[in-house]
Design a protein around this nucleic acid. Structure first.
Length: 385
RNA sequence: GGCGCUAUCGUCUAGGGGUUAGGACGUGAGAUUCUCAAUCUUAAAACCCGGGUUCGAUUCCCGGUAGCGCUACCA
């Protein structure tokens, strides 16, 4: 690439580039590499090299013209070269960026069809230019729509549980999840199984046609997933239903972790449920008299819960990490350890009396705990309106 | 800000120059039921806006608007 002039060494420092970017932003100009090193003389390059200056390798996007490629779902898409930045191909540490690695990799692996998310559309002209510079045949591109939150923003875990682990722990059946996902974005014929919208993996493999995928980003709607999951649960034989329970909410591993927390706290086995129901419930909504600390308003309590959530999201799911993180938050907001932990206890367990909080949260799992705190916050916000 | 993508009930979608614009979830009403679910019946609910093309546009074209994405020595 360097030899053919499709790429060049760039000796600009990160600080210089950052300064330029800020100026461009301030002037409401598109943030773009200013081209400082695009046409250095061989002597300049030798001098910088000899001086041991670090450099990156950038692609030399043609100054004029445009690149058009075909997206198999949307048709031709054109980008003016003036809108394509001189992408860094090789970082100063010698490692390639995604753009270079991706193109080389896919070529070497003889990839025929690149199926990736929509967010890559704007990078595709860079990739096409690279294939051309190498003299390689570019693959076909299929850019898939992005899943959305209820408010249509790009799906995020702040607004939706996005980890499959959460859905498994919360008791969604893999077949139901698969079916539901297959329903999103098109690709499946409408008349399958008498238009019941229910189909198996095998049927999906047989009937799915990527050419029918719709380019608009669908909203990930839990309501319909729950309905579908209910259908799948009802369709199970009693035996399979029990097996499903035993492999998830009643799994040995989960049960023994819970038992370990309450063994010293009960006098009869019959009390097991009293202390542990929050481990098995989907939704827990404590009443104000349970979660509201004395001398705290609902508003400041809710605000503090929001901060607890942020801390929980950012913290490793271990006792060693969680305890100091939560205490640090309480300290910085003048919430006593007691108020702090009691609020979280109420949110997670629904009660002021429970097995040890952090241990319980660890057993319950990060994904489900975060979900529970989010639901609490949502419910409180709604009740205020 | 620039560039790009997208646009059918609240949501997931079918359809496509002439249709009562179809289905599913959810919602309302009713039936059934010891309760709650489930089940059955039923109702309300959509082609983003403005031009153009056309005998006729929700469908094709253009513009606007809105949403989203990208705008890194991240992927």
């Amino acid at each position: 690439l360097l030899r053919s002039g499709a790429a060049y060494r760039c000796f600009c420092t990160a600080e210089e580039l950052e300064a330029v970017r800020r100026q461009q932003m301030a002037a409401k100009l598109p943030a773009r590499y200013p081209g400082t090193c695009r046409n250095l003389s061989p002597a300049d390059i030798e001098a910088s090299l000899a001086a041991g200056k670090p450099f990156v390798i950038r692609m030399k996007v043609p100054a004029h013209g445009n690149t058009t490629f075909r997206d198999e779902l949307r048709g031709p898409i054109t980008f003016e070269h003036t809108n394509v930045d001189d992408q860094v191909l090789l970082k100063s540490d010698g490692f390639p960026t995604y753009h270079l690695a991706n193109v080389v990799d896919d070529h070497l692996m003889r990839i025929s069809d690149v199926i990736r998310a929509e967010e890559w559309i704007s990078s595709t002209p860079k990739h096409i230019l690279l294939y051309e510079a190498f003299g390689w045949q570019a693959p076909r591109f299929w850019h898939m729509p992005l899943l959305r939150n209820q408010d249509k923003s790009k799906i995020s875990k702040r607004k939706n549980p996005v980890s499959l682990v959460y859905y498994r722990q919360a008791g969604f059946l893999p077949d139901a999840m698969l079916n539901f996902l297959g329903l999103m974005g098109g690709g499946m014929p409408a008349d399958i199984n008498n238009a019941t919208e229910k189909f198996t993996l095998a049927e999906m493999i047989r009937h799915f046609d990527i050419r029918n995928v719709r380019p608009a980003g669908p909203v990930f709607d839990l309501t319909k997933l729950r309905w579908l999951n209910g259908e799948y649960i009802r369709a199970l034989s009693l035996q399979d239903f029990c097996a499903a329970l035993r492999s998830t909410v009643l799994a040995d591993e989960y049960l023994s972790a819970i038992a370990n927390l309450i063994q010293t706290r009960i006098e009869t086995l019959g009390e097991f449920g009293n202390l542990t129901h929050f481990f098995f419930a989907d939704d827990i909504q404590p009443a104000p008299e349970v979660f509201l600390p004395k001398n705290r308003t609902p508003e400041e309590t809710l605000a503090f819960a929001v901060e607890q959530l942020a801390v929980l999201e950012a913290t490793d799911w271990t006792h060693a990490a969680l305890e100091p993180a939560l205490k640090a938050l309480g300290e910085s907001r003048s919430w006593s350890v007691k108020e702090n932990f009691m609020l979280l206890r109420a949110i997670v367990t629904g009660s002021t009396m429970s097995p040890p909080l952090i241990e319980s949260m660890i057993v319950f799992g990060k994904a489900r705990t975060l979900d529970r705190v989010r639901r609490f916050i949502d419910a409180q916000r709604k009740s205020k309106k």
